[in-house]
Design a protein around this nucleic acid. Structure first.
Lengths: 128, 128
DNA sequence: CAATCCGCTTTGCGGTGCAAAGCAAAAAAT
DNA sequence: ATTTTTTGCTTTGCACCGCAAAGCGGATTG
């Protein structure tokens, strides 16, 4: 238990709970070697300014690692998940899943059907 | 397609994409006859002020219906989902699910495993 | 040697979540 | 009878933040 509340809604870490940052983290999740600023920008469909700002926030939260270098003579920024960022984001996804399952249960009860107890992340994380 | 983008991250309606409001909507989803202000407050673990503010926002968005009456001599506010609120929130939940599945796929690819294609809401909604 | 482009960062502002304060009416206490 | 407390909310104030637009240094192109 890392958080004070067991309430899953209270466990949705603000740093990730933002559409733009969700996209960023998700895309980085699939890119072990990181992505360049431009690649990330296009994958996320974000403007330069917004990506830059979100990345600063994520870097302050130690969620991503930002490496500045050069490709030829042009500057090139490469962004990758930090170990902690990956762990924290997976925890966030689990909380999201809990929220979704909670809502699903409410709907099911309303419909008089048994609640679905499927899980996407919990088991996967248990293996890691 | 109600939205301009097919990007699931862009479909996360702000009005619902807020932990406090997610809790509110989810709890209302399970209460067909609505909940009183106090019941909702306790179910969501929100302060009076925050619940009040979120409810105003949700009412402006036509997502909930707010009925003011009296229980004995005391004022009593009863909140329930509007038809549109229910539909919109279910759509939001589907978008959330898509986001979660996208992330799950990224993780799976990373692990060299096949992506899980489970679904919580889509099928349920198809029946409605 | 302009002018344009590239790869970002910074600025400005409008919107908003949250804690604390406020408020009217009812109930309880004295 | 009159203070005090409780109930059931609403309002206020502020700090934070997402976003669009502007800025900026260096490379490249005409």
């Amino acid at each position: 238990m890392s958080n004070t509340h067991d309430n899953p809604y209270a466990r949705l870490e603000r740093i990730f709970h933002e559409p733009g940052r969700l996209t960023i983290m998700s895309n980085l999740l699939g890119a072990i070697d990181g992505l360049t600023f431009t690649e990330l920008k296009e994958a996320c469909e974000l403007t330069d300014g917004n990506l830059s700002r979100h990345l600063s926030a994520l870097e302050n939260a130690k969620a991503v690692h930002i490496k500045k270098s050069f490709a030829g003579s042009r500057p090139q920024t490469t962004i990758s998940l930090s170990k902690q960022g990956r762990e924290d984001f997976m925890a966030y996804l689990q909380a999201l899943e809990a929220v979704l399952l909670d809502a699903a249960e409410k709907v099911a009860v309303q419909d008089g059907k048994p609640a679905p107890k499927r899980t996407l992340f919990s088991t996967r994380l248990a293996n890691a």
